[in-house]
């Protein structure tokens, strides 16, 4: 199975998709395998553990914001469940 996602740091709770991943795909990353619960496009993030509301999401070993709802292992992490701890971005 080719490597579909990359865990950037040992402390991270999300991985980055290295190709377009489909819901139900088995995704291998750094010695682990999980099932994708959503379609996840290249460059997008997938939870590699369960994350509770208000908990930090870590990427590059650094916090990139807080979860706004519970996130399950394998779920797509994006604007629907993650918010900046600094400035809320401008969206169309």
């Amino acid at each position: 199975m080719s490597k579909k996602a990359l865990l950037l740091h040992g402390d991270d709770n999300c991985a980055v998709a290295l190709m377009d991943i489909c819901k139900g795909d088995l995704v291998a990353f750094e010695g682990n395998i999980l099932t994708a619960l959503d379609d996840i496009s290249i460059g997008h993030k997938m939870a590699v553990s369960n994350i509770s509301t208000g908990s930090k999401v870590y990427k590059y070993g650094a916090a990139i914001g807080s979860a706004t709802k519970p996130i399950l292992r394998g779920e797509h992490i994006h604007t629907q469940n993650l918010v900046s701890d600094y400035i809320i971005g401008f969206h169309r």
């Binding site: 914001g65 994006h78 969206h91």
Partner: peptide, 10 residues
């Protein structure tokens, strides 16, 4: 955002 970035700090 369409490219997968969610927050400014990310």
């Amino acid at each position: 955002a369409e490219g997968g970035l969610t927050t400014l700090e990310e």
